[in-house]
Computed example of a mutant assay.
Amino acid sequence: MKISKPNIIFGDSNLNFFKSLLKIFNIKINYIKIEKFKDNEYKIQFLKKFNEKIIFILQSLSNPIHDNLINLFLIIDSLKKICIKKIYLIIPYFCYSRQDKIFNENSSISIKLISNLFDFFNVNKIITLDPHSSNFECCFNTPLKILKSTSLFVNDIVKNNISFDIIVSPDIGGVLRAKNLANYLNLELVIIDKRRPISNYIKIFCIIGNVEFKKCIVVDDIIDTGNSIIEVTNFLFFNKINTVIVYITHSIFSEKSFIKIYNSKINKLIVTDTINFNYFNDKIKIITTKYLFIEEIKKIILEKYEI
């Protein structure tokens, strides 16, 4: 059975990643023109008539977050106006997933507000990777497919024949993520009791497990300022760890915090390409997530042809 090329368009974020993904489907052009007026308002224009009534939109909701959100909402709204029946969103990094609770009296639950906006557009499915919140799925009425980066990390470790003794969760909230990786690699799990009394400040209380003279992998979903992972690394070396390799899904790197990582005791940092990042050196390595999303696109295309 011959399957036609999917209709895939992408927004204004992470352009290199999206272009490399489209190459797999032999799609050479983004059939959407995105312009900005002098006051930064967006104007959206489609460059072809979509005969198929199924379309995929690629957009990572990283910095500038609100530009990328509005950009995406305008694209969806424009597609609705030309009667596209099924819209699937590929969102590698989903903003506001860290704000899943009320932080103080009368404050908004930010991810719930964002989810309500997506629910309004009534898209068919949102496909994303490693959202921070364990409550993420509960906030949405829109169907979700949440992908995990664990298999990518395992493949990289096996491919490079890297030997380790333990997997470390840098906090209690990341235990499930670290446990999944530990199970794949049949390694011991160590947990750090780290708490955040105020934003961008952490306090480490204790370590659960033995790290002395061992090689470890620390796994987490987001690196932002880098302060937290550096503090964890320093704490591990204080407890006589031998080697610290860090695997992170989303590399936000606020205020060029990758420079702090480069100057830290971290032996190597491996991040994915869900957020645009072009700073390469011998300490920071990037692995691609595009094949995870390609497989999901293929599944949806094949479902259309099922009898």
Rank of each mutant, 00 (worst) to 15 (best):
T142F: 06
I198W: 02
S251I: 12
K159S: 14
V219G: 01
C139Y: 13
I102W: 05
P197M: 02
I82A: 05
T225E: 10
P92C: 09
E52P: 00
I146P: 08
N160M: 08
F121R: 14
I252D: 00
P6K: 00
Q45A: 08
S264D: 01
S151G: 01
V211R: 10
F205M: 07
F56M: 03
I127A: 09
F37Y: 12
I223M: 11
E105K: 13
F50T: 01
T225R: 07
L176K: 15
I300C: 10
L147W: 03
N276C: 05
D221N: 06
C138S: 14
V246G: 03
K28G: 07
D130T: 09
N141A: 08
I275Y: 04
H132I: 06
S151A: 10
G209D: 02
F164E: 04
K101M: 13
I167C: 09
K260A: 12
V190M: 07
S4A: 03
Q45S: 14
I90S: 09
Y201N: 08
I65C: 00
N155R: 08
N281I: 12
T272F: 00
I29N: 09
K203P: 01
F237P: 06
K48W: 00
C95R: 00
I230G: 02
D224S: 15
F253S: 06
Y279T: 04
